[in-house]
């Protein structure tokens, strides 16, 4: 177990380092961000002064070295644009993103499990076919289109939900959250729904495929033979054996939604981290991009670690080494 942890840790450091190199190399090809920050009529001296203020006067190699050495002291660098620590910019926006992603994942799971199990256990029924057709629609719908339609129908026409933004927030375990008040929840529902549709469709299809596979196995026949009721057969014996791929994909989807909920956040003016990434790319704000992508890589490593742990939990035959 300890060896496994150590291996994972080394892997993580290598991944983070590679991400930082990649971003630095890529950013050296895009323009000099100084030009976007100084006025168009700035003189050479003023540009030079701005460059020095931003730490952009050195070569890329020196800049990278400076980044690494301050990283060793726990300093992730500061944004050119905000002039604030880059990590802080991400952390202060993170709760909002975690909130819609959690709700979206909850929506997806709650619907995907019963629908997927049903479709997998009864593949020939008309209901299953309808579910499968629906999932295809869910996968193909672009998020921004769905978001706009939801806003138009439920906010502008029916006025059930607010059109955009985050509702009032409360302090909860040191985080600013909005799900504790009704008004806050109302703001959460449309963006979370938009975000969940794609995930819901994919999870459902995976559960169905796995269930169809599992239902052919001998142990299902034995379970039936010993008189287990249908529900027990499906959920206790069937679903449990279909869980491994589900957990894997769930982990990946979770990471994906947290890191790149950008479109949904933009459409609903949701103050999360996805928008920060896009804005930073737009502004050439390298320190934020580097830290953001390193943060994302870190998150994926952690999620995958948890997924590995869960494997062992669901399937005792799997040992963590």
């Amino acid at each position: 177990m300890l060896g496994y942890l150590l291996k994972r840790l080394i892997q993580m450091i290598v991944v983070l380092w590679a991400v930082s190199v990649l971003v630095f190399v890529m950013m050296s090809f895009t323009g000099d961000p100084t030009y976007m920050m100084v006025p168009l009529d700035a003189t050479e001296e003023q540009i030079e002064q701005a460059r020095r203020l931003l730490g952009l006067h050195d070569s890329h190699l020196v800049q990278y070295w400076r980044f690494l050495s301050s990283l060793a002291q726990g300093d992730f660098g500061r944004s050119f644009v905000f002039r604030q620590p880059a990590m802080q910019l991400i952390l202060e926006r993170l709760p909002a993103t975690l909130e819609i992603v959690s709700l979206a994942m909850a929506f997806a799971l709650v619907l995907a499990i019963p629908l997927g199990v049903y479709a997998g256990a009864n593949p020939q029924r008309a209901g299953s076919r309808a579910v499968m057709a629906g999932s295809l629609v869910g996968i193909s719908l672009p998020g921004f289109w769905l978001g706009m339609v939801l806003i138009f129908v439920f906010a502008v026409k029916l006025q059930f939900f607010p059109s955009s933004g985050r509702g009032p927030t409360q302090e909860w375990l040191g985080l600013r959250v909005s799900f504790l008040s009704w008004e806050g929840l109302r703001h959460l529902i449309l963006p979370a729904l938009t975000l969940s549709v794609g995930t819901l469709a994919i999870l459902m299809r995976i559960i169905r495929a796995e269930m169809m596979e599992v239902m052919k196995q001998d142990f299902i026949k034995f379970a039936r033979a010993k008189g287990t009721d249908r529900r027990g057969v499906l959920f206790k014996h069937g679903l449990k054996n279909a869980l491994i791929p589900l957990i894997t994909v769930f982990g990946l989807m979770l990471g994906d939604l947290i890191a790149f909920a950008t479109l949904t956040e933009t459409i609903f003016a949701w103050p999360g981290i996805g928008k920060l990434l896009v804005d930073s790319i737009y502004r050439g704000d390298r320190p934020v991009i580097v830290v953001y992508l390193m943060f994302v890589a870190f998150m994926f490593v952690v999620v995958n670690f948890i997924v590995d742990m869960l494997y062992a939990l669901v399937d005792p035959r799997i040992k963590i080494k």
Partner: peptide, 18 residues
């Protein structure tokens, strides 16, 4: 002041009274 980047969302926010 609320930042609403997407133009259609901005219009919707006005029409819904947000």
């Amino acid at each position: 002041f609320k930042p609403i980047t997407n133009p259609a969302t901005r219009t919707a926010a006005l029409l819904t009274g947000g």
